[in-house]
């Protein structure tokens, strides 16, 4: 190419694409979704703040249901298998995914994890995502239900500050409700903010520690699972 006028340079041509990004994750998620539906496995993507009580909620769930339902858990954390150990101690099977620098699980990781689990038709699968109110909202895993767990120690304004996560939720659990009298948290204000971001979300208030609201949580999961199973066979 000429240094003075640039003659001889190749012409620039435009290739139109118009494709959504993260298409490969979306495609893998649909593959997971179809696989799970084919096995009648109800999959829940459990997201939320680090320390909000996701694992404790699972322990409470397994304690009530381990005799009557087959529960599997895929655990996502940056490091350690501490949560998987807790799940196994509670009486359910777990597969740990250590994401390293990754701040969320993605559909490819779930696809691999599904091949490491002993799946049976009708299982209840929880995917405990990396504790994070930002990134997991962007990554469809192939789940049927998206749950976001939060707690009163975070303050009432988190729904406004993290809209994509709260918008993505089908069910929002306010855990650690036993702490409400001890922290500056206004439940009505929090509820109003949740509904401002996501009118359709169901809200359940629990304490995995004291057992409050766990019955409501279990009933909701059961109802949604029944609808899923009815929908498949219809």
């Amino acid at each position: 190419m000429c240094d003075t006028c640039g003659c001889g340079a190749s012409a620039v041509r435009t290739i139109d694409v118009n494709e959504r990004l993260f298409a490969s994750n979306a495609a893998e998620a649909e593959h997971n979704r179809a696989h799970l539906a084919g096995r009648k496995i109800f999959a829940i993507n459990l997201m939320g703040t680090p320390g909000a009580g996701k694992t404790a909620l699972l322990e409470a769930t397994i304690a009530k249901w381990r005799g009557s339902r087959r529960i599997l858990v895929i655990e996502g954390d940056q490091a350690t298998d501490r949560d998987s150990a807790r799940i196994r101690a509670a009486g359910a099977s777990a597969c740990q995914v250590e994401t390293g620098l990754g701040c969320h699980l993605d559909a490819h990781q779930i696809h691999d994890a599904l091949h490491h689990l002993d799946l049976r038709d009708g299982d209840l699968l929880f995917i405990e995502n990396v504790g994070n109110l930002v990134c997991p909202a962007l990554f469809d895993l192939g789940e049927r239900l998206r749950v976001v767990v939060t707690s009163p120690t975070e303050g009432a304004d988190k729904p406004l500050k993290y809209p994509p996560m709260f918008r993505a939720a089908h069910l929002i659990v306010l855990n650690k409700c036993d702490l409400i009298p001890h922290v500056p948290f206004n439940l009505d204000e929090w509820t109003e903010y949740v509904l401002a971001i996501n009118r359709q979300a169901r809200i359940i208030i629990t304490s995995a520690f004291s057992g409050d609201g766990i019955g409501d949580w279990l009933a909701e999961i059961d109802n949604l699972r029944q609808s899923f199973l009815t929908g498949i066979t219809a």
Partner: peptide, 29 residues
Amino acid sequence: LIGRCPRCGRLGGELLSGDEMILRAIEVT
């Protein structure tokens, strides 16, 4: 990330569009 209604001032609301991520075109030589 989140809007405020210009009429009544309420924050948030149902998101109709605006969270897309699209590769439109590639210019090459």
